[in-house]
Design a protein around this nucleic acid. Structure first.
Lengths: 191, 191, 191, 191
DNA sequence: TATGAATGAGGTTTCATTCAT
DNA sequence: CATGAATGAAACCTCATTCAT
């Protein structure tokens, strides 16, 4: 008769994460209120607090679930010899990870200031620096170091920016990957 | 002995902009409250509203004052032939403009989500696309197009990211510029 | 001994409406702050916002609840033949409705300028015009048309003004009704 | 060259009153800010304070200038015998006064709640009661007393309300006056 | 005769969060 | 597993007013 209560069989937690990430990515973290999330789910704010202790925790949980591949990538890379081949593999896997966790990466890129204030900020930054350090060599000339950083930025550029301009995302991703590969290769050639 | 009223002779507007930008860059736009800005200036919130109609207007005014060089650069580039030389000059000038307006650019990079919601967001995006369009060629192969975008991203990378890692900012900037030049050159070679 | 938290069991909404109307009528809408309403109820301002989306909505909700009889009256009158008897019945019922919703009508009369700016303003005005149109006849001579309007104004006069001067409100209301009846009758005699 | 300062030769005070009344009547007293008045005059708020001590004083000054005729009318009526003829003359002159000070009367009618809080409120109310007392007779039957009050309300009705409905204001005013005369006459017939 | 700069009080509204049920 | 009711803090903003110049 009246619109039924729609019993959510234990997947509410996941639904909250989905809606939250969608809104965070769309409007930014600060501009997204718990009221909004709750409303879109047709649930009360209090329900969110049953599943998560704080607003920040919602974001953290998404983050933890999504970025595991990168953690694994870093762990793996730590054990490999720091050859060009290793670095290429890193870029390849990084590009793939970014692709599957797209919305979150977009969010992180666009909300760096916010991230910095949150407790995950540190984590993210450390991870980023770790990635760069695994690609870079202290003794290399500065431009080559820049190339390494730029390789990663290029992957981001490919993902974040070109999506507005070009058609096929996968094709774009591969083009970006190619350029990144090129950069890292070049960083090795002369030096 | 107690802090005197200190009649600020007409430079208050500028001071507000300075402090605001500093805080915006440090904490993000949303997290920075007008109370904070006012307190740091030892002025009341109402004083801010005497000089600016809204919080957003403070940011806009900073933006307008700082990004004029880029506007001029785009206007200039529009009239030049689209040769490699022109593009190199664009990158050179862009790098310089970014350098002198450093804090604001850092802010914009780290608060993209916020920027998107604000009225300047559109402006910034248009400008960015214009820059890219002036560097890019529609008919070029995708990777070369990516190289053009990446050239700009590299300048940002050099500015935003490496500052945390390396010592001399000017040296870093030049290294980034060199890599960007390299990218744009390469985008022209094969294609 | 200190005033206990007093859990208000679900009638808070009503209480807010009561206190709000009282204050609105006493001091005017604009001069009445939400702080005042909240304080008198020993509740926080935020509590008001749990029950109503805006200050205006508080007024609207009171309005909607109180003026339903008038809406019904107008609907009813629309279906009747426009005879003197009908009009007399209209005045009778209008007088009664005004009497039971006394405070609100007083408020509306004394805050016309405010009402005009609010979203209900339109509604009220339309209703008023509808009433007048149901009493008036386009072809009648001007003074007779004035008599019809004046009949309604007389009911208001009886309620709003004489209450300060005379003793028994019910008696006064009836006297006003009598005069209004007289006016409407006279408007029919010659014409 | 630049838009000239437009020296206002001593009539600024008057101009302020004009603009203020216009806005007060349009939006209500509370909703009209000094900023608005100043802006419409292309003058600073401080300038208003050169001419008037407070916001309220602006209203008072308008009031004093406009309602002198009514004061004189009341003084005059106090010395006359309280005959029907006198009362008719009162209504006639009241109607005229209301007509020439139209905007202010409209303002007062629509901002009764505000008026009550202001220092003029008392004055206005006293005057109103005085008028009514000069028309009314304590010993008369209630309906006849209502008729007297209603006579004045009818003049207001004619002015405030019918202006939205009918064409020629002067004609409407006269019609209202006729009805008012009729009411006062009737109040004398039986009693 | 006016302005430019500033203030202090207060306005409405929103937010993350809590807790008894 | 979730809600209804409420809170305290703080946000942005506006207002009437003042005063040195």
């Amino acid at each position: 008769m009246s619109s039924s209560p729609q019993p959510r069989r234990g997947n509410t937690r996941q639904l909250i994460q989905d809606v939250a990430l969608e809104l965070f990515a769309e409007q930014g973290y600060e501009k997204t209120s718990l009221r909004e999330i709750a409303e879109r789910l047709e649930v009360t704010k209090a329900a969110l607090y049953y599943h998560f202790k704080t607003k920040e925790e919602i974001l953290i949980s998404i983050f933890d679930d999504t970025t595991r591949p990168i953690d694994e990538l870093i762990a793996w890379a730590g054990e490999q010899p720091r050859t060009l081949a290793t670095k290429k593999e890193m870029l390849r896997r990084y590009s793939e990870a970014m692709c599957s966790g797209g919305q979150l990466y977009r969010f992180m890129q666009e909300n760096q200031a916010t991230m910095r204030e949150l407790s995950i900020g540190e984590t993210v930054k450390k991870r980023m620096l770790k990635m760069v350090d695994l690609l870079r060599t202290d003794e290399a000339p500065l431009p080559n170091q820049v190339r390494c950083v730029s390789a990663i930025f290029t992957l981001h550029a490919g993902m974040m920016f070109l999506q507005h301009v070009e058609a096929d995302p996968e094709e774009t991703r591969l083009a970006a990957l190619e350029v990144a590969m090129d950069l890292i290769t070049r960083a090795h050639e002369e030096g």
